[in-house]
């Protein structure tokens, strides 16, 4: 049992660089797991449908990222980062959390945001952009708040620890 998991871990570590999706830069190897999404998914696909499925979620994430990239308060944090990968992993993470049945292949929130020096005000700016993107997609306000409630505790991993 132990050996099997070690073997699986080694395999996944080795596999990561080879499997770099088109248009993305390779990242240092890490263990893949849905638990990296740092949240428990909603039980059924009710929320996934409230977000208009894959197309709706993709539009919400693009809306959030595009607004963030042009917001002078936080745009510097995204400079030189792999935004193509960010869009893909965020789509996976939201799909996984919203009950859309995807597998999350990204890193943990703590690992992904390490040493970025993100402050509470940066997170609030990003949430504002997420809210604006959800409004544009006409997501029901109650569904918006249920997703935000799931993301909010990630603050402890995303914002730099003092």
């Amino acid at each position: 049992m132990f050996c099997a998991s070690v073997a699986a871990l080694l395999l996944s570590l080795q596999a990561a660089p080879d499997m770099t999706p088109a248009g993305e830069q390779p990242v240092a190897p890490y263990a893949h797991a849905n638990a990296n999404a740092d949240g428990v998914p909603f039980r059924d696909d009710h929320m996934w449908r409230a977000f208009h499925g894959a197309i709706g979620v993709a539009r919400v994430i693009d809306g959030m990222i595009d607004r963030s990239l042009t917001d002078p308060r936080i745009s510097d944090i995204f400079k030189g980062q792999d935004i193509t990968r960010l869009r893909r992993t965020l789509r996976e993470q939201f799909c996984y959390l919203l009950g859309g049945g995807c597998t999350y292949t990204g890193r943990t929130m703590q690992e992904a945001h390490r040493n970025m020096g993100i402050q509470s005000a940066d997170l609030a700016a990003l949430v504002e952009h997420l809210q604006a993107a959800m409004q544009t997609e006409h997501i029901a306000f109650t569904a918006q708040n249920r997703l935000l409630a799931k993301l909010a505790p990630m603050k402890r991993d995303v914002v730099k620890q003092k």
């Binding site: 308060r73 402050q119 509470s120 005000a121 609030a124 700016a125 949430v127 504002e128 003092k162």
Partner: peptide
Amino acid sequence: PGMAQATDTRAGGKLV
């Protein structure tokens, strides 16, 4: 304990 340290302060940051 750490809060007496002087650092750059920043305006804003609460949700509406």
